[in-house]
Computed example of a mutant assay.
Amino acid sequence: MVAIVSAVLFFIAFLINAADISTNDTFSSTNLMLLGLTALALHVAGIGSGWSVRGRRR
């Protein structure tokens, strides 16, 4: 789920950068890219993945 959020943020940042849309400082393409990288790092760390590995059941 967090990986999908990061992909959407990367896509929006790409559109802002490719279309050369002037936005305020909060929604710049760099800030959206950094938010996407943060979400991707959280996904790689296992937060928001929905799976919890507790060990094998026998």
Rank of each mutant, 00 (worst) to 15 (best):
residue 36 G to T: 00
residue 53 V to G: 06
residue 9 L to S: 01
residue 27 F to T: 13
residue 10 F to S: 04
residue 8 V to M: 07
residue 26 T to M: 15
residue 29 S to Q: 12
residue 42 L to H: 02
residue 10 F to K: 02
residue 13 A to S: 10
residue 22 S to H: 13
residue 29 S to N: 11
residue 13 A to Y: 02
residue 26 T to D: 12
residue 18 A to H: 14
residue 2 V to A: 14
residue 30 T to F: 11
residue 26 T to Q: 10
residue 57 R to W: 08
residue 9 L to G: 00
residue 13 A to G: 06
residue 51 W to L: 15
residue 34 L to I: 05
residue 40 L to S: 04
residue 25 D to P: 13
residue 6 S to F: 02
residue 54 R to M: 15
residue 30 T to P: 03
residue 19 A to Q: 09
residue 12 I to A: 01
residue 29 S to R: 05
residue 52 S to P: 02
residue 34 L to T: 08
residue 48 G to R: 05
residue 39 A to N: 01
residue 24 N to L: 05
residue 7 A to G: 03
residue 35 L to M: 07
residue 52 S to N: 03
residue 55 G to M: 02
residue 43 H to Y: 08
residue 36 G to R: 02
residue 24 N to I: 06
residue 6 S to E: 01
residue 10 F to A: 02
residue 47 I to H: 00
residue 4 I to D: 14
residue 41 A to K: 05
residue 23 T to V: 15
residue 45 A to E: 01
residue 45 A to W: 06
residue 27 F to G: 14
residue 20 D to I: 02
residue 46 G to S: 01
residue 30 T to L: 09
residue 32 L to D: 05
residue 55 G to R: 00
residue 30 T to N: 13
residue 55 G to V: 00
residue 57 R to I: 14
residue 10 F to N: 05
residue 51 W to R: 15
residue 11 F to T: 09
residue 21 I to G: 00
residue 55 G to Q: 04
residue 3 A to E: 06
residue 38 T to K: 04
residue 33 M to E: 09
residue 26 T to H: 13
residue 49 S to K: 03
residue 5 V to P: 06
residue 29 S to C: 12
residue 42 L to W: 00
residue 56 R to L: 15
residue 6 S to Y: 05
residue 47 I to D: 00
residue 20 D to G: 04
residue 49 S to R: 03
residue 12 I to D: 03
residue 30 T to S: 11
residue 49 S to E: 07
residue 17 N to H: 14
residue 24 N to G: 13
residue 37 L to P: 04
residue 58 R to V: 13
residue 29 S to M: 08
residue 25 D to A: 13
residue 45 A to N: 06
residue 39 A to D: 03
residue 27 F to H: 12
residue 48 G to D: 01
residue 35 L to D: 06
residue 31 N to P: 00
residue 29 S to H: 07
residue 54 R to E: 13
residue 14 F to D: 02
residue 20 D to Y: 06
residue 29 S to T: 09
residue 58 R to L: 13
